[in-house]
Computed example of a mutant assay.
Amino acid sequence: MTALRVLHVEDEPDIREVAEVSLGLDPDLVSRSCGSGQEALAIVEDWLPDIILLDVMMPVMDGPATLARLRANVSTADIPVVFMTARAQSRELDLFRSLGAVGIISKPFDPMTLAASVRNYAHPPDELTTLRNGFLERLSNNATALTRYRSLLEGGMARRDTLSRVRDMAHSLAGAGGIYGFAEISAAASALEEAAIAALDAPTGVDIVARRLDHLLAGFPATTGIQRNIPPLALNA
Rank of each mutant, 00 (worst) to 15 (best):
R159F: 00
R159M: 08
R160Y: 02
D161F: 10
T162H: 06
T162Q: 06
T162D: 14
L163K: 00
L163S: 02
S164Q: 12
S164M: 12
S164L: 13
R165F: 13
V166I: 09
V166Y: 00
R167W: 06
M169K: 13
A170W: 02
H171W: 13
H171N: 09
S172V: 15
S172M: 08
S172L: 13
L173G: 07
L173W: 04
A174G: 13
A174I: 08
G175K: 09
G175E: 05
G175F: 05
A176Y: 04
G177S: 03
G177R: 00
G177C: 01
I179R: 06
I179E: 12
G181I: 06
G181W: 10
G181P: 02
F182R: 00
F182E: 00
F182A: 01
A183F: 11
A183V: 15
E184M: 12
E184N: 10
E184C: 03
E184W: 03
I185C: 02
I185H: 01
S186E: 05
S186D: 03
S186Q: 03
A187D: 07
A187K: 13
A187Q: 07
A187M: 13
A187F: 08
A188G: 03
A189S: 14
A189V: 10
A189L: 05
S190W: 10
S190R: 13
A191N: 04
L192M: 11
L192K: 00
E193I: 01
E193L: 00
E193Y: 03
E193G: 04
E194P: 11
E194G: 11
E194T: 14
E194M: 12
A195W: 00
A195F: 01
A196K: 00
I197S: 02
A198Q: 08
A198P: 03
A199Y: 00
A199T: 05
L200K: 01
L200F: 02
L200I: 05
D201I: 08
D201F: 05
A202I: 12
P203L: 04
T204A: 03
T204I: 03
T204E: 04
G205N: 15
G205A: 14
G205E: 15
V206Q: 01
V206G: 01
D207N: 13
D207G: 11
I208V: 15
I208A: 09
I208G: 04
V209E: 03
V209G: 04
A210Y: 03
A210L: 09
A210M: 10
R211M: 14
R211C: 11
R211L: 11
R211V: 11
R211S: 11
R212S: 05
R212C: 05
R212M: 08
L213C: 13
L213Q: 06
D214H: 06
D214I: 04
D214T: 07
H215M: 06
H215K: 08
L216D: 01
L217R: 13
A218P: 02
A218F: 04
G219H: 03
G219V: 07
P221K: 02
P221W: 02
P221E: 06
A222L: 08
T223L: 11
T223A: 15
T223H: 14
T223P: 09
T223Q: 15
T224V: 15
G225C: 11
G225P: 12
G225S: 07
I226D: 15
Q227P: 15
Q227I: 12
Q227E: 14
Q227R: 15
R228C: 06
R228L: 05
R228M: 09
N229K: 10
N229T: 14
I230C: 07
P231G: 12
P231A: 15
P232G: 06
P232S: 07
